[in-house]
Design a protein around this nucleic acid. Structure first.
Length: 500
RNA sequence: GGCGGUAUCGUCUAGGGGACCAGGACGGAGCCCUCUCAAGGCUCAAACACGGGUUCGAAUCCCGUUACCGCUACCA
């Protein structure tokens, strides 16, 4: 009772009103899986507590930002099913507000002009490094006499605005880490406005988060050391603090921050590799979050219901593509063929197996084909790869399969010929009569059923692996199936002549 | 170097003083099912970083050590 009351009270700031969270990527590449996961956690939180999930594009670095990247971020989020509320905010458009806030800080005595040049600072840093000391700006410009400052301003000397870090300690109660404290003496008087008048990251972020009325800042834990600076800015601006939640990073198999050399890092890469968005989102959610207990395979709405910041992990997680593929296999099996169809069709058409018109003409059959193949597929590509035999085009036989199943060509020819005869006599092209007929055939020939099924499987699919042989036969249809057997028989004949 | 963060099977994690010779999942090994491959079912191997405390009792709380990660720009 007491404990739950305490838990309730500490959670109050999160729940007193509808929370407003944001995802704030910089458009300098593609939507990274790490960013996608941060977005997901924010989205889940907003949806769970009926708040707003906002999107802010941090495009202040004009040299690196591109419209293409911005589009990729929109597309990635949309593909994952993460919709955002209100208009997208572009940080560059907040410039005037950032400058007003920085100016306010100067006017209120929380910031001062610094005339030190980048080159001078660089030299000081190097000198400190050479002595083995750690460098921190020595506040020399804060000691300039007022008339001297005025003189240099009038002279047109370039200057930056530095924040005057007060004495004391800056701390906050992080939603995932608990209390974190930084002694202010370790924080240097950081720049808030460049000499060209543009804001530095921490200034812009705080200014924007205030303007957007963000109540919970949830971001990667690489921002932990930015947080005390931002808190100082909120205080100096006289604005109440949001809550902060720092979620862990995603690493590659080698324990290092996930990067290009670990393979695919963009969510678009996984879409191209045949991963379902539902699987991607499920997998990402479990990287750094757990609903508690043994729950693993979940849909987005189940995750919303189960989401809680209590389940957030402090430790960095390793991105394991093996588990992603397994997860995708699970989602493939669980997703009805009607929902899979729009995803499979373009790939199937691109592979040249069928046209979109063909597929819609035999829609019911097509859906049953997807249902047949999805169970043993781990990606959408697996489905397409396995689909070929069921379409009328020519088949090529897998070399190893031929060596194994049709090793004795004469015998294979014989088996397939009798199978062909046996099947062609069937009046009802259904599993039960087929199975009866073929098993009887095996019996009369005195061989195990598998000795017939395997050569037949190769004739029908060109491979040694496929769904159950009767499912293959039924799905393929009488005409195509018999034709494939004929082709195999002919192949075996021709080959024998060539050999003799 | 300074500051901050983190530490449970190879990986994702459950657990939050006794219910734990630590549970689930991926991956691995094996068995069952079986016409093959998947799926599914069952079984096995596999972890509390280390050292000190506190306590009747520690994976859980405290301290230290180690390792790893992040930050340390007029980048974001």
């Amino acid at each position: 009772m007491r404990a739950s009351l305490v838990a309730y009270v500490t959670r109050m700031p999160l729940l007193t009103s509808a929370p407003r969270v944001r995802f704030a990527p910089s458009p300098t590449g593609y939507l990274h899986v790490g960013g996608a996961r941060t977005a997901l956690f924010n989205w889940l939180f907003a949806r769970k507590y009926h708040g707003q999930f906002l999107l802010r594009i941090e495009d202040t670095d004009k040299a690196r930002s591109t419209d293409e990247s911005t589009r990729a971020i929109f597309e990635g989020l949309t593909w994952l099913g993460l919709d955002w509320d209100e208009e997208v905010v572009y940080q560059a458009q907040g410039l005037a507000q950032h400058q007003r806030d920085a100016r306010l800080l100067l006017d209120r005595g929380h910031a001062y002009r610094c005339f030190c040049t980048a080159a001078e600072l660089d030299a000081q840093r190097k000198a400190a490094g050479a002595r083995g000391d750690s460098f921190r700006y020595d506040r020399r410009c804060d000691r300039l006499a007022p008339d001297e400052v005025q003189r240099r301003v009038d002279a047109g000397d370039p200057f930056v605005l530095r924040f005057r870090v007060p004495n004391g300690t800056t701390s906050w109660d992080d939603v995932v880490h608990g209390p974190i404290a930084f002694p202010n003496k370790d924080i240097e008087d950081f720049v808030i406005l460049r000499s060209d008048g543009t804001p530095i990251y921490n200034m812009a972020v705080v200014s924007d988060d205030i303007a957007m009325a963000i109540s919970l800042v949830m971001r990667g834990d690489d921002h932990i050391s930015n947080t005390p600076k931002q808190i100082l800015l909120y205080d100096a601006l006289g604005h109440a603090l949001p809550r902060f939640a720092h979620v862990p990073m995603i690493h590659g198999l080698d324990g290092k921050k996930l990067s290009k050399r670990h393979g695919a890092t963009a969510v678009a890469d996984y879409r191209n590799e045949g991963i379902l968005p539902s699987a991607m989102v499920n997998f990402l959610a479990l990287l750094g979050w757990s609903p508690g207990g043994d729950r693993e395979v979940m849909a987005l709405d189940e995750m919303i219901a189960l989401f809680s910041t209590d389940g957030l992990q402090k430790k960095a997680a390793v991105f394991d593509t093996k588990k992603l593929e397994w997860m995708n296999g699970q989602h493939l099996s669980l997703t009805p063929s009607t929902a899979l169809e729009p995803r499979v069709t373009p790939d199937l058409v691109a592979s040249g197996l069928a046209s979109a018109e063909d597929l819609s003409a035999k829609h019911v059959w097509y859906l049953s084909l997807i249902d047949l193949l999805k169970v043993r597929a781990r990606t959408v590509h697996d489905i397409v790869r396995q689909a070929a035999p069921y379409f009328p085009g020519p088949l090529s036989y897998d070399e190893d399969a031929v060596a194994k199943q049709w090793k004795d060509r004469a015998a294979a020819h014989d088996v397939l010929s009798s199978v062909r005869k046996c099947l062609s006599e069937l009046t009802d092209w259904q599993t039960t009569p087929m199975e009866e007929a073929l098993r009887t055939l095996a019996e009369t020939r005195g061989v195990a059923a598998g000795k017939i099924f395997q050569p037949l499987r190769l004739a029908l699919t060109g491979m040694t692996v496929s769904p159950g042989i009767f499912d293959v036969l039924v799905t393929m249809g009488r005409e195509l199936a018999l034709r494939r057997i004929d082709d195999a028989v002919r192949y075996l004949e021709v080959d024998q002549h060539l050999l003799t």
